[in-house]
Design a protein around this nucleic acid. Sequence first.
DNA 1: TCTCCATGGTTAGCTGCCTAACTATCAGCC
DNA 2: GGCTGATAGTTAGGCAGCTAACCATGGAGA
Lengths: 185, 185
Amino acid sequence: MPMLMLKNLPRYECLLEASKEFPDLDPSACEAFLHLLHAGDECFRAIELNLGRHNISQGRFGVLMCLMSQCRSDGVDAALSPAELADRAGVTRATMTGLVDTLERDGLVTRAPDQEDRRMMVVSLTAKGRQLLHEILPEHFQRMAILMHTLSEPERKTLVRLLHKIKEQAAKLAPPAAAHLASTG
Amino acid sequence: MPMLMLKNLPRYECLLEASKEFPDLDPSACEAFLHLLHAGDECFRAIELNLGRHNISQGRFGVLMCLMSQCRSDGVDAALSPAELADRAGVTRATMTGLVDTLERDGLVTRAPDQEDRRMMVVSLTAKGRQLLHEILPEHFQRMAILMHTLSEPERKTLVRLLHKIKEQAAKLAPPAAAHLASTG
DNA sequence: TCTCCATGGTTAGCTGCCTAACTATCAGCC
DNA sequence: GGCTGATAGTTAGGCAGCTAACCATGGAGA
């Protein structure tokens, strides 16, 4: 997520300086905030690097994961509609069309008309798609573990607790947009 | 950052279940990781909502902030080259061209040839751009404060400390891409 | 049965990100 | 001065996100 923030976090002294001009700026809050976004960004990149080596983006990867999760929980090779995929992925149906387009083009998913509702398509994982996931996931999870094992178990618990608090507050400031997204497009 | 993760975080039991199929998956690490990305996403959205009301994206906002920071530290209405902007913002020069295009179109920045190096343009903030920032920033910082004041000061310190650890690890897994970015494009 | 509204998937256009390529300019070396 | 390599900004094309609009289908109510 480039541009999420500037490359270098402002030094605390700069924040202090800026708070003279902008009284609403709380240096401590600003610092923590930027660190949170920065850390998220760095973690995102660490994971993305692995995906990029397999020529797949986070978005497409997410679609494949949705489809695979669906299979596993049912033990059946179930399929999902683009709308359902969009809902789970938190993007619009329009966006999902594009994602499924390229996934289908690459032979990772198939798309077929739904038998019961003529408005709908259904998307399912191909063997190739499943295979790709099995290639990707070991290192994907390893990287995740490497990153988070920087912290001890108690530290991770603390982190999750603090993050949970922030998320709750964020949900008040910005009601989940995902609820309307899959309807959009 | 849509698609960063699926809309709903998997329950811990699901992670446990998945770890049977994927031995590299550490449920605790995975949980903390996803929480971090989710929290970042939510905070991003909370801030973005305010920006959106002023018809400006995070990216364009960042450019304006770069230019304003440059002014303030010098006390002079200095300008930056697109390459310098790209470097600070962590995007490619190609991307910066587009951002500056729309900012210029909206009268928020001006672009002029550099006097000393005919290859270069210089970009500066207009009064309109500065004005927009002064309209945006109060609530921008308020939102930031609201979010981070969910935590006490000690909790924020803890959070920053933990995040710093993770970022260091991430830097090892994914060396800063920004170093090459501004050269790209 | 007909009408209206909701739903689904896609398209078009825009923005923002990337890479690769291009032209113009600059700097250093011979 | 000429040549070479580096640098700057832009363009083209692709991907991913959005909104709005569109057409087809489905469901509910009269």
